[in-house]
């Protein structure tokens, strides 16, 4: 049974269409990531599901209920904002229990639920502090705690890790994945970071210009990108995409090969190239090559033993790893 179903969603602001013909179904218990460059409509789509914006046309079903015109609070969703949106004048306890107290639940029930959520998120000792006195990671957890106590059918996350530093982000990625496993709830997660998408998602939805480019598991997107856009968006460093006459010579409009799928040789190969720039990352090295025939190429090789800048080398694509669009 699917948990969230979007049918023919369209959204316009004035005369500008920002979402067009979105059809999507997200299964129960799935961790679904909306990814795309800024302005692609991923946040708008999330806000449409949350009910913070209303669709221009189309239908939104959550569980088995049509919620297209329901109030946000009646959709069975909870949301974690990019800025966390913690109420600065309330303590952690009051922040987590805010929705319950608005719903006029008994005090004992609120207390029990808040404390259970806080325990699960290791916030027990911080309950009487104000958000100001918390670290970024702790604030993040409070925001998640506020979502948990609502016991929603669907969790919505709007770029929740983008305000954290790199180390904390990796840790929170793991915590969120753990949380997803523990709760077994449906989660929809918006990010512009393809690494987050790849590492956390059961299903990735790649959006571009208000349309869905492709839907699939992380490895499906990596191995079978449906378009040059998806091919270029997933994977780091970015796939080499060759267009124009060079691509036509290779039998397609756009020819793609990932940096990790290039073989280098000093003696022979597909394309003759010059080493222009070297980025050493320790375990691997990124080479920027200038080829004669197909222009610049990026190659990624293991280890640090690479020819110096200015050397002439040859690069070839690994059989079966090329993409022709």
């Amino acid at each position: 049974m699917s948990s969230v179903t979007l049918t023919q969603i369209k959204k316009s602001f004035g005369s500008v269409d920002v979402m067009n013909n979105i059809d999507l179904s997200i299964e129960k218990g799935e961790f679904c990531v909306f990814v795309g460059p800024s302005g692609c409509g991923k946040s708008t789509l999330l806000r449409l599901i949350a009910g913070l914006e209303l669709v221009t046309s189309g239908k939104i079903v959550i569980g088995d209920r049509d919620v297209t015109h329901a109030e946000p609070s009646a959709r069975g969703i909870a949301m974690v904002f990019q800025s966390y949106a913690l109420y600065p004048h309330l303590t952690v306890r009051e922040n987590i229990g805010f929705g319950l107290s608005l719903a006029k639940r008994p005090k004992a029930e609120i207390k029990a639920k808040v404390e259970a959520a806080a325990e699960a998120l290791q916030l027990g000792h911080l309950l009487d502090r104000k958000p100001k006195a918390l670290s970024g990671g702790q604030r993040q957890r409070v925001a998640i705690g506020r979502a948990i106590v609502r016991n929603p059918a669907v969790f919505l996350f709007d770029e929740p890790l983008s305000n954290l530093d790199a180390a904390l982000r990796t840790q929170m990625r793991m915590e969120l994945t753990d949380l997803h496993r523990k709760l077994g709830a449906t989660m929809i997660y918006v990010t512009h970071d393809q690494v987050e998408a790849m590492t956390m998602a059961d299903k990735i939805v790649v959006l571009n210009g208000g349309r869905i480019e492709q839907v699939g598991t992380p490895m499906e997107l990596y191995n079978k990108p449906a378009s040059p856009f998806v091919a270029g968006f997933i994977g780091s460093p970015k796939m080499n995409l060759i267009e124009g006459s060079a691509a036509e010579a290779l039998g397609c409009k756009v020819y793609g090969i990932r940096p990790e799928h290039l073989c280098l040789s000093t003696t022979e190969g597909q394309w003759e190239a010059n080493v222009r720039h070297i980025e050493r990352l320790g375990a691997e090295t990124i080479l920027h090559l200038d080829t004669v025939v197909i222009g610049p190429l990026i190659a990624r090789v293991a280890g640090e033993e690479v020819p110096p800048v200015g050397t002439k080398i040859f690069a070839s694509a690994i059989e079966g790893r090329e993409f022709r669009f």
Binding site: L52, P72, S73, Q82, A85, Y87, F98, G99, L102, R146
Partner: peptide, 17 residues
């Protein structure tokens, strides 16, 4: 930040709340 209003709306707050 308007996020705060929206968080409260999702938490079920009416406009006056």
């Amino acid at each position: 930040p308007q996020d705060l209003d929206e968080a409260a709306i999702i938490d079920g707050a009416k406009p006056l709340q």
